[in-house]
Structures are given as C-alpha cells and as structure tokens.
Simulated assay, not measured.
Amino acid sequence: MNKRMMWMLVITAVVFGGLFGMKWFGNKMMNQYFDNMPMPAAAVSSAKAASLSWRSTISGVGTVVASQGTRISSESGGLVAKVHFESGAQVKRGDLLVTLSAGSEQADLARLQSQATLAKSELSRLQRLYKLEAISKSELDRAETDFRATQSAADGQRAKLAQKQIRAPFSGQLGIRQVDVGQYLQAGETMVTLQQLDPVYIDFTLPEKDVLLVDVGQSVKVTLDGQNDRVFEGVVSAIEPQVNVQTRNFKVRANVANADRSLRPGQFARAEIALPDVRKVVAIPLTSVSYNPYGNSVYVIVKAPKKAAAEGKEATAEKSKDELVVRRRFIKTGEARGDMVEVTEGVNAGDEVATSGLLKLQNDAKVIINNTVMPPSSTNPTPAES
C-alpha cells in the first residue's frame, strides 16, 4: 500500500513538473521571439537645424494706457437737469455733457450783479465829487473797495454757476453714462469716463539688467493676446529714472498710434524692443524638443551602419539600402521666437531632427521620413485664415 502511494506521488510530480516545464519553456521562447522581433520603422517628419541671424531684442509685458483719461465729475453737487451725450459718443474739448439745476445760483448772481452795478454808479458819482474836492480821498477809496468786492462776489457766483455745466476737458470717447435726469449728484461723483484713444501709451516693465539698453526713440513692436495676427508699431517716449526696489524692474512707456481704436486702455500687452546688434544662432522647430525635468532632448536622424552579407563560401560586402535611425541627444536651449527655438549646445547647423512622432521613438529606432504634413516652423507665425 505504501509502495503504491509512493509511485502515485512520483507520477503526479513528474506529470505536473512536465506541465510546468513546458509552460516555462513556451514563455521563454515567446519572450525571446518578441525580444528579437524586428520593430517596424516609425514614420516621422523632420527638419534640419538652421543657422539664422537673429537681431537681439528685449521684451516685457505691460498695459495699454490712454494718452488722456479721466472720470467726468462735478465740483459741486446738484440735481441733473439735462444730459447732453449718449454712451460711447465721440466728443470734442468744451462740448457740454451735463447740466445741473442752478435756479438759486442764478438768482444769487442777479442779486450780486445788481449790487455791483449800484457800487459802480456810486463810485462814478464819488469820483466826480472828488474832482470838485467835495469829498475826501478816504471816501473815494472806500467806494472803490466796495465796487471791487461786489464785482468779485459776482465773478465768484459766475464760477459757481459755470460748475453746473459739465464740459469735456479734452477730445475723446465717452464710456457708459452713469447719470439720469432728475438724479441728485454729490460733488465728485462720476458721471461718465472719457478716454483719448489716439495715440495710446504702452506702459511695460523691464529687468534692471536692461536699463542701459533702452533709450528714448527706439522702435517698439506691440502684440496683444486677443489680436495675435497684428503687430502695432511704436516708439519709446519715456523711461522711468528709478528702479522699483521690490521688483528690481523699471518702467518704460511707448507711444503707439491707434487710429482704428484697436487698442483699448487696460488691455494686457507684450512689447518688444529691437536692439542694433545681430547674432548668429542655430535654431530648430519647437516641436522637435522633448522638455523634461532632467534635461531637454531631441532625436537626431542618422544613417544606420551598413552590414556585410555572406553568400556561399565567400563573404562579400553587399550594399544594403540606406536605413535611418534616431539618436537621442540632450541639448541646451536659448531664446524662442515663434515656432523656432535657439539651441546653444547639442545640435549643429545641418543636423536633421525629428519634429513629430517623438512619443514612439527611442534610441536606435528605425524611422521613415514623411514630410507631406509638417508642423509650423516660423519665427513670425500668423494664425491660419478660416
């Protein structure tokens, strides 16, 4: 009985051992097959590293500012009698915008004018009497003083009355009106905004290291996020003489023509100043660069080494068809312009790099170049028209 049990255990162990052995051998052969299986060539687009001449520039970000802008308000309070403008209207300097009720002020002016007229008549009478030596010089001086006082009081009342008529201090475009007829306004309360939009200023900041590179009169190119297809030309009109101690930046103001009112105060703007010096750079498309925390890299396309083939008893060197492979290189990048980026180390002018399909590449992977569809590669890209 014990001998039979022992044989059963041995046979079971042999059977299961054989099954596991066959399974292990099959997996090994399958892995070996996949490891040695040739990978198909990946289709990529390519571009050659170009040697370009780039003019040095300095750039900053800032804000569009109206050449003149204010909130229209009144020096004195009062009831709105009439509104003479519409929201968004163009006005000229001196145009009447709002009239405040001024009944009591006009009555006071009439009273003061009457007093001034009476004081003038009294002064004329006393001047005649003084010539006849009928009165003293002190009486004449007192009459002259009374006349000047009443005249000044009338002039002051005219100034107060003029405050009831609010006029445009300069030519420009009005905003949305914030008053209505019958509304009572406090002194200093905003009625409407007024902006002069041609020209406009671009106020932007630059780091302190560029303080000696900027000068009044230099040309400036301005772009806006909402209008990437347009470049606005301007000139540097003013430079802040001191550097901000918190940010270590200094402010620059550029004057930009804005005849079509495309630039509006408060918009975010990017400004670029072109410097006179030109430098040679090696540039490649941005799409060819793999950006990683441990370093940026590109895949350079090179020819695969040729192999010798043996036929029969003699080994002869056989020319095989040129095959292309990629080699990964770590690079250092510099300034980016449009779709291109400067390479300061790792790539030479004329090297061919892969510009698409980077995720499916690895070192020594075979590739096929297909440039029928190419990623954009321009230093001054413009959006495609729809």
Rank of each mutant, 00 (worst) to 15 (best):
L100A: 03
G103T: 15
S104A: 15
Q106C: 08
D108Q: 15
L109D: 05
R111Q: 15
S114T: 11
S114V: 09
A116Y: 00
T117R: 14
S121F: 10
E122A: 10
S124C: 02
Q127P: 06
R128C: 04
A134K: 13
A134E: 12
A134C: 03
I135A: 10
S136R: 05
S138T: 08
E139W: 05
L140V: 04
A143G: 05
E144D: 06
F147E: 06
F147D: 03
R148V: 13
T150M: 11
Q151P: 03
Q151K: 09
S152P: 09
S152M: 12
A153R: 06
Q157V: 09
Q157F: 04
Q157D: 04
A159R: 14
A168Q: 05
P169T: 07
S171Q: 09
I176R: 11
Q178R: 08
D180F: 15
D180T: 15
V181P: 04
L185V: 02
Q186L: 09
A187C: 02
A187F: 01
V192S: 00
L194I: 05
Q195N: 11
Q195M: 07
D198K: 03
V200C: 05
I202F: 01
T205K: 14
L206Q: 00
L206G: 01
P207H: 04
D210V: 03
L212H: 13
L213T: 05
V214R: 03
V216W: 01
S219Y: 04
V220K: 00
K221W: 07
T223Q: 08
T223I: 02
T223K: 03
L224T: 04
